[in-house]
Amino acid sequence: MEIRVLRYFLTVVQEGSITQAAKALHVTQPTLSRQLMELEGELGQQLFIRGSRRISLTEEGLLLRQRAEEILSLIDKTTTEFSAMDDASIRGEVRIGCGEGEPIRFIARTLTAMQRSYPFIQPHFYSGNAPDVLDKLDKGLTDFAVVFGPLDLTQYHYLRLPGIHRWGLLMRKDSPLSQKAVIEPQDLLSIPLIYSAQAWEHNEFSGWLGVPVEQLHIVAIYNLFYNASLLVQEGLGYATSFDNLAPTGPASPLCHRPFHPPLQAIPYLLWKKSHRFSKASRIFLEHIRKDLTAISLDT
Rank of each mutant, 00 (worst) to 15 (best):
S206V: 12
Q35R: 15
C255E: 02
L297F: 01
S190E: 12
G44R: 11
K23Q: 15
L6P: 06
D132E: 09
R160A: 09
G249Q: 12
A228G: 12
A265I: 10
F259D: 05
R257P: 05
E70C: 06
S281A: 15
L153N: 10
I18Q: 04
Q46V: 07
D76W: 08
R91W: 03
I295E: 01
D174S: 12
Q29C: 04
I121R: 04
A22E: 03
Q198L: 01
L62D: 02
N129G: 11
E102W: 10
L188Y: 11
F259H: 04
E70S: 13
V13A: 02
E201G: 00
R105H: 12
F148T: 02
L285F: 00
S73M: 14
M37C: 01
P103N: 09
L169I: 12
I71P: 02
Q198A: 08
R34V: 07
S296N: 02
T293K: 10
I55F: 07
M114N: 01
K23C: 03
S83R: 15
P162F: 07
T78A: 15
A228D: 07
H275K: 07
W208F: 04
Y268Q: 01
Q198P: 05
R50D: 03
T80K: 15
R172V: 12
A22N: 00
L189Y: 13
G163P: 01
Y268N: 03
I266C: 04
L224H: 14
V27F: 05
H165C: 13
R172G: 09
K279T: 06
G149I: 11
E70K: 07
A220R: 04
N129K: 11
D187S: 02
Y226L: 09
G128D: 11
H165K: 09
I121V: 13
Q29W: 09
R53I: 06
I266Q: 08
L230P: 01
L170P: 00
I194V: 14
I121C: 03
G128T: 15
Y238N: 01
S296T: 11
L285M: 10
Q20V: 13
L10Q: 04
E15I: 00
I90W: 01
V147Y: 04
M85K: 15
P150N: 07
D132S: 12
E100D: 11
N203D: 15
G210L: 02
F125S: 05
I49R: 14
L224F: 05
F9S: 02
L188M: 11
Q198M: 10
L47I: 10
V133Q: 03
T293N: 06
E40L: 13
I121M: 01
T79S: 14
A265D: 02
Y126W: 10
I104N: 12
S117D: 15
L231E: 06
Q215R: 14
L111A: 08
L263T: 08
R67D: 10
L177H: 11
S274R: 10
P250Q: 09
G61I: 14
E69D: 04
S56P: 03
V27E: 02
T79N: 10
L43R: 07
R257Y: 07
I183H: 01
A88V: 13
A21T: 05
E42S: 00
L159C: 04
Q122L: 14
S206H: 12
R34N: 15
H217K: 14
L230H: 14
E2M: 14
R116S: 08
H202V: 09
Y268M: 03
E60C: 03
L209G: 08
G210S: 07
S178R: 06
A199L: 04
L245Y: 07
